[in-house]
């Protein structure tokens, strides 16, 4: 009996220390990791969508609360006027969540473009959503609307052949972004003015 208690006690102490240590390190590196992800994962997509912006959208960003969720907005300055935002949302793909970054022109309410950020789709099939710019370019210049659908579901987006689920995920991500933007529109247009230079 004493032996069992000793085993339980030692394992418990060990795991407690381990948990505490990891929590401390996670807390210390959280911000750094977020910056790294912005730079290496979301950065390329943001830069591609807000191409030609005179600022660095990764630096010029703000956060807004959407219900209980915090959303990051990346600001693009064109011709000296901050009139574009990019934000990310997710759609359910074949291998988990597909992250979609979408740029919106605040002035005319049209999409500036979309790009896939994180995904675990099949290489050569769904992964094309990220590699092939032809697919995401279909979102460019489209006005913000209630929902985006692939042609199979009665929409206007041509799915990648062999990757309907991934294409649906991207469309769902863009739909979600449009929803967030419509909900937060007043706050976004308020915040974005701070970036006018």
């Amino acid at each position: 009996m004493r032996e069992i208690i000793r085993m339980i006690l030692i394992l418990a102490i060990l795991t407690t220390f381990s948990g505490g240590l990891l929590a401390a390190i996670r807390g210390g590196t959280k911000e750094k990791i977020e910056n790294q992800q912005l730079q290496f994962v979301k950065g390329p997509a943001i830069k591609a969508i807000l191409e030609g912006a005179s600022n660095d959208p990764i630096v010029d960003r703000f956060k807004l609360m959407d219900g209980d969720v915090e959303r990051s907005f990346f600001v693009g300055v064109f011709d000296g006027k901050a009139n574009a935002v990019a934000l990310e949302s997710f759609g359910k793909g074949y291998g988990g969540d597909v992250g979609v970054m979408v740029g919106i022109n605040v002035d005319d309410g049209k999409l500036l473009g979309a790009g896939v950020t994180t995904h675990a789709e099949t290489p050569g099939m769904g992964a094309k959503a990220k590699e092939d710019p032809g697919f995401v370019s279909q979102f460019k210049g489209v006005p913000i609307q209630e929902s985006y659908k692939v042609t199979k579901d009665g929409g206007k987006i041509d799915a990648i052949s062999g990757a309907t689920i991934t294409s649906r995920a991207v469309a769902a991500g863009v739909t979600d972004v449009a929803g967030i933007y419509n909900r937060l529109k007043p706050q976004v247009s308020e915040k974005i003015k701070e970036f006018n230079k």
């Binding site: 030692i10 394992l11 060990l14 795991t15 381990s18 240590l21 990891l22 390190i25 996670r26 590196t29 750094k32 990791i33 790294q36 992800q37 730079q39 290496f40």
Partner: peptide
Amino acid sequence: ACYIVIIATFVTVVELLMQAYTYP
């Protein structure tokens, strides 16, 4: 079990540090 806890802790530390400093 104790060794695994110790090893897993160090591995997670490395993982977090690599994410923070050598992301690519």
